[in-house]
Nucleic acid binder design. Structure first.
Length: 406
RNA sequence: GGGGAGAUUCCCGAGUGGCCAAAGGGGACAGACUGUAAAUCUGUUGGCGUAGCCUUCGGAGGUUCGAAUCCUCCUCUCCCCA
């Protein structure tokens, strides 16, 4: 099939990338690959530590897909062993060791979700338990001898934890070595990862060199701030947009990001080219309109343009025209909770799942956050007449239609 | 192995016998203003049909009319010495 010119490939590869260590080596690898008509081996390791992939950790996956489109071999490592340790990168405490069952369940959902991004028919898929499971203690010692404590402690995350007296367990120091060992085992030419992975990626280079292999090129992509606009997008912070979320939900979450993150989201979370992005972010386009385009582009990336269009219209209907959303969840109240066709408003909120406790429901009501058929209820002692089909709204964006069941 | 310090509510962190469901900050939620943006302002933030009651301060016992606070043991963490 033949590869494109190395320089052309590099230009595509460079898009939305922070570091390439080293770029001259990458160019050289690309040239040789073309001359020998041999695909490069591009590695991406994913630790199945959470059940969902979000648009933040999807960034390097998209980069892997770009390499794949250029004809290179995508190697996906499911870090079932590394997930047990938990990547200490950026963490301020030891991550909980995950159970084998949890990890394997997550790995399953990962693979399903990755199909939205990568051609999974063409990837080389490996679990790193393949080599770690049978590793002997002497091999571990041998591996651990390859790096010094001082080198490890150069890392800001470890240094900070150490100096502020937060425990660091020995097994956490093993993590970068494990990741590097993966590179050794799959003979990667390039490894992808977020910028916070640079250290781990460089360890891979060192190990390969030590073992007499050609070192991999480390390529890092930016980290994406979550919908809170503050911290890195992550499952545990709940500030993420999952790639399998419903279009409406995806759209809504995208609309809630800060204006100054739009550019970053456009580059990293959509397929839009630079020119259209610049046009949208031009000062005479209202930021809200630009953001709607962004939200559509994100939905379109994981669903399709029709779904994106529908989500956009639906959003406008609810938040611009203040009409009811189309697919209101329907909640049935058990008949025995009604008295003379009435229910205590607090009970209503708890039974319909809006709040977990009575206290929380009381607060919401007292603060004017609850309305029924557009009428605000502020009295937490109120008894509400249940009319099947009535619409309860809690806060700005949670709705449900109420019915009665048995 | 020896010595010292510590574990408080979602997080950080005050509190060293009753005035403590526990200051302050962060986060979160709700309201106002908006564009489901930011900033700002206000309120709420253990449970309970709530002027009251119940359960919380690493765990288990104990002292006391009364314990987050004092004592004993245990678990875990950090620091110093070796």
């Amino acid at each position: 099939m033949g590869f494109r010119k190395a320089e052309e490939q590099l230009e595509i590869i460079r898009r939305g990338v922070i570091d390439i260590v080293r770029e001259d080596e990458l160019l050289d690898k690309l040239r040789r690959s073309r001359a020998e008509n041999r695909p490069l081996r591009i590695k991406l390791g994913l630790d199945p530590t959470a059940p969902d992939i979000h648009i933040g950790n999807a960034i390097p996956i998209h980069k892997l897909a770009a390499f794949q489109k250029l004809g290179h071999t995508a190697i996906l490592i499911i870090g079932d062993y590394t997930a047990m340790v938990g990547d200490p990168t950026g963490a301020n405490k030891t991550r909980p060791m995950l159970s084998r069952e949890r990890i394997m369940a997550n790995a399953g959902t990962y693979l399903n979700q990755i199909g939205k991004i990568l051609d999974t028919g063409k990837i080389e898929l490996v679990y790193n338990s393949k080599w770690f499971e049978k590793m002997s203690f002497s091999e571990i010692i041998n591996l651990a001898a390859k790096i010094t404590v001082a080198r490890m402690m150069e890392r800001d995350d470890f240094t900070q934890r150490y100096s502020s007296g937060i425990p660091i367990s020995l097994h956490e120091l093993l993590y970068p070595l494990m990741q590097g060992y993966d590179s050794l085992m799959v003979k990667s030419d390039v490894e992808l990862g977020g910028t916070d992975q640079l250290f781990n990626l460089l360890v891979g280079r060192d190990l390969q060199r030590d073992w007499g292999l050609e070192p991999q090129v480390a390529l890092t992509t930016p980290l994406l701030e979550g919908t809170d606009g503050q911290k890195k997008m992550s499952k545990s912070l709940g500030n993420y947009i999952g790639i399998t979320e419903e279009p409406a939900q995806m759209f809504g979450k995208a609309m809630s990001i800060r204006d100054d993150l739009m550019k970053k989201y456009f580059v990293l979370a959509t397929d839009l080219d630079e020119k259209s992005v610049d046009e949208l972010l031009h000062h005479d386009v209202h930021p809200r309109e630009a953001k709607a385009e962004l939200a559509k582009a994100i939905v379109a990336r994981y669903w399709d343009t029709a779904a994106a269009e529908r989500a956009s219209e639906e959003f406008d209907k609810v938040f611009k025209e203040h009409k009811l959303p189309e697919d209101l969840p329907e909640i049935l109240l058990p008949r025995n909770e009604l008295k003379d066709g009435k229910i205590w408003i607090v009970k209503l909120l708890v039974s319909s799942g809006f709040t977990k406790t009575n206290g929380e429901a009381r607060r919401l009501v007292a603060q004017g956050g609850v309305s029924i058929n557009d009428e605000i209820f502020k009295d937490a002692d109120a008894e509400v007449n249940i009319i099947p089909g009535m619409v309860v709204k809690v806060g700005k964006r949670r709705f449900a239609r109420i019915g009665v069941g048995d």
